[in-house]
Design a protein around this nucleic acid. Sequence first.
DNA 1: AAAGATGCCAACCGCAATTCC
DNA 2: GGGAATTGCGGTTGGCATCTT
Length: 285
Amino acid sequence: MGRAPCCDKANVKRGPWSPEEDDILRAFVEAQGTGGNWIALPRKAGLKRCGKSCRLRWLNYLRPDIKHGGFTEDEDNIIITLYNNIGSRWSVIASHLPRRTDNDVKNYWNTKLKKKLSGKADLKKGSNNNGNATSNSIIHLSSVQFPGSIPKVEDYDYGISAGFGTDASPVSYQTGVSYQQDFHSQGLVSNPAVQFPPPGPMEVSEFNTSGNTSYSISSSQEVSSLSAASSSLALDNTTHASWSSYNGGRVQDDEFLIDFGSPYELLSGFGFQEQAHEAGLVNQI
DNA sequence: AAAGATGCCAACCGCAATTCC
DNA sequence: GGGAATTGCGGTTGGCATCTT
């Protein structure tokens, strides 16, 4: 037997709220507060609504400090970065956007941002966040079948190294290897000056897969706050990759296409291959 | 002008977490 | 400690508005 419903559905009104109901709820909450009990509130206020419905209406619509619509570019960037880092934790994401509700952020993501991002995936050439083409942003890859599951990664001491395996071999990753943000069609770009994440303890917040064609790796020094550096690498539909980083109030996004040309260059493209060789991991790749 | 498709968003649903007794 | 009640959250849906054919 399941749990009892929160209210008698036969005797409560459902569907859109009328202005009169809004007035009653607003007046009651402003005068008396919720009393810490939403379930009892509609009865006290004289509303024929479920307590959950009242709570939702207040939190998402009637609260006086709510801003609807008109998301700014900065808000877009924050949502995208956080989504890449922590996934669909809308309440957490909304907490970084003053006066926004989780429902609003969720709706905005589902109706606008998701499409905006998938539109970018159709780009024929990579570009940086200024919209300029980046000549070294094509990554060659072929004969690679992404595995259906990736082991959960918890904590690392220094950076991460990750690769995408063939159908027959597992994804490999290891600790203690810094990697470079530079990528190049011809292989590893030797640029020790450009390393990300920066040296130092890092917490890997997410390492997840959605289906078997979309992967992301995120690392962050302080997952629940934007006060520190965070970054994420995402592969979308195996043809589009994006690198998103946030550091000191500045969001930077890079994106590029994957060209299925020759095997495993994705690794070298991210500066992984040589280090994997050195670490004796090449067979796993 | 009408019909169908698509976009948008408020609201609902069900489950997990938390609090209360 | 355990069960019930309540809250919080994310996924999904329903219906209206707008766009396209």
